[in-house]
Each structure stands twice: as C-alpha cells, then as structure tokens.
Design a protein around this nucleic acid. Sequence first.
DNA 1: TCGATATTTCGCTGATTATCAAATTATTTG
DNA 2: CAAATAATTTGATAATCAGCGAAATATCGA
Lengths: 105, 105
Amino acid sequence: MNNAFKALSDPTRRRVLELLKQGPLSAGELAGQFEVSKSTMSAHFAILREAGLVASEKHGKSVVYHLQISVLEDALLGFARLFGWEMTAKPDATGVPDDRKETGI
Amino acid sequence: MNNAFKALSDPTRRRVLELLKQGPLSAGELAGQFEVSKSTMSAHFAILREAGLVASEKHGKSVVYHLQISVLEDALLGFARLFGWEMTAKPDATGVPDDRKETGI
DNA sequence: TCGATATTTCGCTGATTATCAAATTATTTG
DNA sequence: CAAATAATTTGATAATCAGCGAAATATCGA
C-alpha cells in the first residue's frame, strides 16, 4: 500500500491511471498525452508497474498498459476504511464501450 | 488535491492522520508515538497543515492538532469518483467516545 | 525574573525524484 | 539483412525530501 500511495503522489501518474481507466493504451499513446519526454514517461510507467497499479503486455513492437483496478481499489479502500468511509463501485463507470466489455482489450 | 496526495505519500504522515482520527492530540503526544526526532515530526506536521489535512491551535505551552476530515474526504473522494467509486461516510466510525461527541475537545 | 517545558526554526547531510538526451534492445517490414 | 519504429535503459543534473542536533521562541510556574 505504501508503494501505491507513493505512486499516486505524482499528478502525471494519477493522470495516466485516469487515462487507462477508459481502456488499455500503449506506452506511446500514453506518452503522447503528456509534455514530458518518452523516457520520463517510461520511468513513470515503471513506478506504476512496481506498485502493481498497472500491468503491461508486449504486443508486437508496442507495450500495452492496462489498469489493475483492484489494486487501486484496495489501496484507496484500505485507507478510506480507517477513516470510517465505505467505498463502493458504481455499477458501470468504467467508460469502456459495451462492445469491449468482455475482452478487456 | 495534489498537496494532499503528496502529504499522504509518507507512511509517518498517514499514521499521524490515523491517530488524529480518534481525537485531537498535541505535537508532543503525537511525536511520542514515533521513533523520529521532534523536529522531524514538526516538519511532518507542517506538511500536513499546508495540505489542509490538519489544523492546529495553541493551548498554553502546547500545540494541539486535529484532523480536517472534510479535506481528507474531498481529496480521496474526488479521486475515487474518477474511477467510478462512491465513497460514503459510515454513520459512526470516528472512534470519538460518546461523551466527547459535542465539544470535539 | 528564572528555569523548565513544548514546539518550531535553522543549518546541514544523504537519499530519492523528475527530468533530459543519447545509447540500447526488440520487432516489423522493405 | 537493413532501415524504421517502439520502448526501455543509462548516465547525468537539479530539485525535493526525510532526517538530525542545536539554537531560537513562547509559555508556564515558582
């Protein structure tokens, strides 16, 4: 959980997670959304990966990242519970179009 | 919100918030719970204060800190909502004994 | 007013962080 | 195979961070 909170402390990384909530994206597609260099973004991806907040798969030339929503949920939920909050998932707020629901691709 | 997440990235500071959820404590009482020096703790308090997560009042010789629960809630809730989670306060999970409920002292 | 107590500020250090450009690795395609 | 593309690794730098002890500030009680 500590690594998760460390990873969440950077606004760039939080925005990466936010982009990934709508579905998987390649390193290049993600990096294209930010002003910083690709190597900097690669370092951010590594931190998110080590925290378990994202996972990656190599597809041909590109590396596709996707959100590990349960890890994010556990970190946030675990902490929120200490303060008497209950966190519940809204039925559908993933932003993933219906026709991609099952595959997750 | 960025400052709040920065402040939450340190485990010592998260534990401070956790201690304060049960009620206000002085700088000394808080520092006594940790292995680090009082000056280090004072720096942590300053970061939490600047993030708005705690507030302090001087009472005689001592400085009493208390949790600004709504600021913590807003930071966590604001972020959680981006991911389709609903955060609700449980009716009573403050840990504050009933006989102190009204005064908040 | 003097000494004790509580806390913060100051000056410093070593570790970590975010950043970049350049080099490297892996993969696809001509 | 060679060139092009995608991403990571490396090496370097400037900034921030957590930590300490010592000095400073403020308040209380004798």
